[in-house]
Write a protein that binds this DNA or RNA. Structure first.
Lengths: 347, 347
DNA sequence: CACACTCAGGAAAGCGCTTTCCCGCACATG
DNA sequence: CATGTGCGGGAAAGCGCTTTCCTGAGTGTG
């Protein structure tokens, strides 16, 4: 082992024992002073210990603390892709909540792959985390037996599991009313005079996508519109671009609205539409979903449905840590935000 | 404590002891089989243990393992704001590298605040992480004595610190050649016929910002351009918008190029310019830095300097874990990408 | 056949904490 | 003055692992 740089100083980290000795008290007392205990310690001892700790630059060894206590201050967060602004915002909310409670968050990337997710969950169980937040799970997963077994095992170590998404047995759930939001979006567009729509979605079985497709269809149809086609791909910009190109190749009538079930998909679609020489808005309208910050910077600005992701992340953390938990608190309502990418049709 | 949902099953997590008993071997043997040891174990024992572990759904308690070993498999990552695509991409690279090596990454948000950062570092030291990646530190920090003391203490617990940014004593460093990239950008714009520039930067002392300002100025001036003004704010869209509005209020000549030292700043500037009724590109040109994915989706597409953030994140992780470490591997060169927001001037 | 030697399991001593007990002290009570 | 009762410090027993020893069995040698 070369050990090229940063030769470890011979100063090992001070232990609680060191602090106790320096303060001239017992280990037990030092522990009580420094790491919140119910028992009182005389003021005189308290200061001596606190001083010694400060002087030595003591920091409790969290691992040791966790083994002794049998529980850690860790929140495990599983996201599909941390570079995606969708998950980034959620992570920001989770991080804020965790910070408030003095918890640490470990993050893992599932790449939206179920097998990978399960492996990660199994590995993370070893941390004995206080809570585990599943932000990228599919609906069907929660039915599979191995999955159930893993979840039970997790509950066994005292970890509270929270899923962001659809109802599921035995875990707390924070739901986004994707269906309702999409319904409102469909209705709003119909009210704007649109009668024909093409939907660009993710694969069937991705619950978020399915809900948005269903909701939009309901709302749009109820107000007299009709969904011509639903094309399925992935939750990515590239997929949106490809699907939109396919649709355009098959012919898309002027006055149609293209609904990308997430903003990144819609953004890809905009690129494809432009590349095909069509005009976004007056010719082909486009709307997304999520209302990521980029929406307002596009030309034309992209219509969307605002999803308060940071808030959601925060609530999800709360759900993981709160002793009492009222599921009613945690359905988020969404606002439709129409912009110039879906101008009112005055025909 | 209401304990509303998910009543903990009475099944506590199986311990290594349970596995050993189930397999009819000693604790030591079980440990050697399951958690990589140099010592050999007879095949017959090996299978019995492995079977028992699988049957019981055993997962090693990482905290206990860490206390016993005196070192953990944790990488602590400090970012300014995880919702910012800049940090999001870096985090993705770090996560990928960590996953490859079976490490876990804990993430903390400094909000770009030095005091907060220091608090977090102190707290995270308790984890005894294998490595700590500082992605949002300022240059001056590394000089302050408390800072040095904290860093020494961290090294004392065996944590390898890696800073993303300027050179610093005693820690490994991964550098982005901001100055060089910006110089190239300035030169390229001058070559495109621009002669006058306004720079929108972050506060003085933010090293990344300072380097980009300096580099751009060098490159632009060397080729005959002149930087009219440098306005300072923060690294955010809002700041970019505000600064650009200020500049416009003071008057900006047609043919000037506005350089936002990060893409988000440039994007804010684009909004302000448009709001002022000016045309981006032909009238006032705009360029950013970082080349976040959004750049190509803007209208006009935003010129920028490509910074391979995911790669950089990956390399910082390597820097944190590699035994041998060659600092030369880790200066990243940047590519200028000119798009329609800075058309060639044909005057 | 006595005598080093390996080899691999198991007992047990940690790792740095928390927490249960025990115990001596000071004060209150009859 | 004997007894009861809090109170709070300290000894020590864990927590679930790793790792150092110790030990007995199996080899090879002269």
């Amino acid at each position: 082992m070369p050990e090229t740089m940063a030769p470890r100083p011979a100063t090992p980290a001070p232990t609680l024992n060191d602090v106790a000795e320096a303060a001239g008290v017992s280990l037990a007392t030092a522990s009580r002073v420094l790491n919140g205990s119910a028992r009182k310690v005389a003021e005189s001892y308290r200061v001596r210990v606190a001083d010694a700790a400060a002087r030595l630059g003591y920091t409790a060894n969290l691992s040791a603390q966790a083994t002794a206590r049998g529980t850690s201050g860790i929140i495990a967060l599983l996201v599909g892709d941390i570079a995606d602004p969708y998950f980034g915002q959620i992570a920001a909310g989770v991080a804020r909540g965790a910070d408030e409670q003095g918890l640490v968050v470990t993050i893992a990337v599932t790449e939206r792959d179920a097998a990978r997710e399960q492996r990660i969950i199994h590995a993370l169980r070893g941390q004995r985390p206080r809570g585990m937040i599943l932000a990228a799970s599919r609906a069907e997963e929660s039915q599979r037996p191995e999955w159930r077994a893993e979840l039970d095992a997790i509950a066994g170590v005292g970890t509270q599991v929270v899923m962001l998404g659809p109802q599921a047995e035995g875990v707390r759930v924070v739901t986004i009313d994707n269906r309702g939001g999409a319904r409102a979006l469909g209705a709003a567009l119909a009210a704007h005079g649109y009668r024909s729509a093409v939907i660009l979605a993710a694969a069937e079985g991705v619950r978020t996508s399915d809900d948005r497709v269903a909701g939009f269809t309901e709302g749009f149809a109820a107000a007299g519109g009709s969904v011509e086609r639903v094309l399925r791909g992935e939750l990515s910009r590239e997929s949106g671009e490809r699907l939109a190109a396919d649709a355009l190749a098959d012919g898309v009538a002027a006055g149609t609205v293209v609904f990308g079930i997430s903003d990144v998909i819609a953004i890809g679609a905009m690129a494809a539409i432009r590349a095909a020489g069509r005009v976004i808005g007056t010719d082909i309208a486009v709307t997304g979903f999520d209302d990521i910050p980029t929406c307002t910077d596009l030309t034309p600005p992209l219509s969307s449905v605002r999803v308060p992701l940071e808030q959601i992340g925060y609530q999800t953390l709360r759900a993981a840590t709160a002793d009492d938990w009222d599921p009613d608190d945690t359905t988020f309502d969404l606002d439709v935000v129409l912009r110039d990418s879906t101008p009112a049709r005055t025909s």
